[in-house]
């Protein structure tokens, strides 16, 4: 069984790579060991020697390449997030990220549609569809785009802002909204998040309380997170400091600032970037219930 899963995994990775090469994206490799990640409230980096960190995402380095004039970039790399282990999480996992200059998040949503159709057609030529909890999801059917507020009202009969105030956001999202999304037979895009849930995203021009961030769900499984990039250094620094204040309040270590990133951010053109959990894409392609089924070894097996 695992032998099949590893062949499928290799095929998905090769297919994803082909997709971006065919579209003229530059494949890059950036350092995995860095002095500072973007400080976020609920993401804990693994600290190594000399207080450097394993990357929690390649975004800091990828955006510096955008600042340097690159237009279309992608990377498939390992990321680490401390203490994350569940049926959909591994502390060490594989991330696909891509970035585009001169675009906003709508372009990335289009990329997602094309990418999932491409993967389904190449890796699952017979069914051309994914399976999650015995539900068949076809990327060739029209995708719904739902705002986060609309999703909370429609599926939970509750207001997202009120949930945030009461500390119920995660609970309602995972126990009400995500299960509702699992019933869709095409992928779904949740978009326009409250800005406190998008530390590196640009706010909407017509509503400063909302960020141009979206999440891609397939069969209720959260697959990717993308946004229009914030490129204002002062605003970015303020949000990182806010994240560190929250970290301090909940007893987590305050993290160092990625200064070279903040220093070059002013040179970043209007752009958009997205991170997709590649392990989860393999899970969907394999119809696997758990992430354990599609990796060579889980930490417990080591």
């Amino acid at each position: 069984m695992k032998l099949d899963a590893l062949w499928l995994r290799a095929n998905v990775i090769k297919t994803v790579r082909d997709f971006f090469w065919e579209r003229g994206f530059l494949e890059v490799e950036t350092p995995l060991l860095i002095p500072a990640n973007a400080p976020e409230e609920y993401i804990n980096p693994i600290i190594t020697t000399n207080s450097w960190q394993l990357q929690t995402s390649p975004e800091i380095c990828m955006k510096r390449l955008l600042c340097g004039g690159h237009q279309k970039l992608f990377q498939i790399s390992r990321c680490w997030r401390s203490d994350e282990r569940g049926s959909r999480h591994l502390s060490e996992f594989t991330m696909l990220e891509w970035y585009r200059a001169g675009c906003d998040y709508h372009t990335l949503m289009g990329d997602c549609e094309e990418l999932l159709q491409y993967v389904a057609a190449k890796c699952l030529p017979d069914s051309r569809s994914f399976v999650r909890n015995s539900t068949r999801i076809t990327p060739f059917a029209p995708w719904e785009r739902i705002s986060v507020q609309e999703a909370f009202l429609r599926f939970g009969q509750t207001d997202v802002w009120e949930c945030l105030r009461k500390g119920l956001y995660e609970e309602i999202l995972t126990s009400v909204v995500e299960p509702a999304l699992a019933g869709f037979s095409a992928p779904v895009i949740l978009m326009d998040y409250p800005k406190e849930l998008a530390a590196l995203a640009r706010t909407k021009p017509d509503d400063s309380e909302l960020a141009e961030r979206f999440e891609l769900y397939v069969g209720g499984l959260e697959l990717a997170n993308g946004f229009s990039e914030l490129n204002k250094p002062d605003e970015q620094r303020r949000r990182f400091e806010e994240a560190n204040r929250t970290r301090n309040n909940i007893g987590q270590a305050v993290l160092p600032m990625p200064e070279p990133f903040l220093n070059t951010l002013a040179m970043m053109p209007e752009s958009a970037g997205i991170a997709m959990g590649l392990d989860r894409l393999v899970m969907l392609t394999a119809g696997a219930d758990t992430i354990d089924e599609i990796v060579a070894f889980t930490p417990e097996e080591l």
């Binding site: 976020e40 409230e41 609920y42 993401i43 203490d83 994350e84 282990r85 569940g86 049926s87 959909r88 999480h89 956001y169 995660e170 609970e171 999202l173 995972t174 995500e178 849930l197 998008a198 530390a199 999440e215 959260e222 997170n225």
Partner: peptide, 12 residues
């Protein structure tokens, strides 16, 4: 037991 963590959110 399961670990659940919505993107950018708190772990449950």
């Amino acid at each position: 037991f399961d670990f659940v963590k919505p993107g950018k959110g708190q772990a449950l």
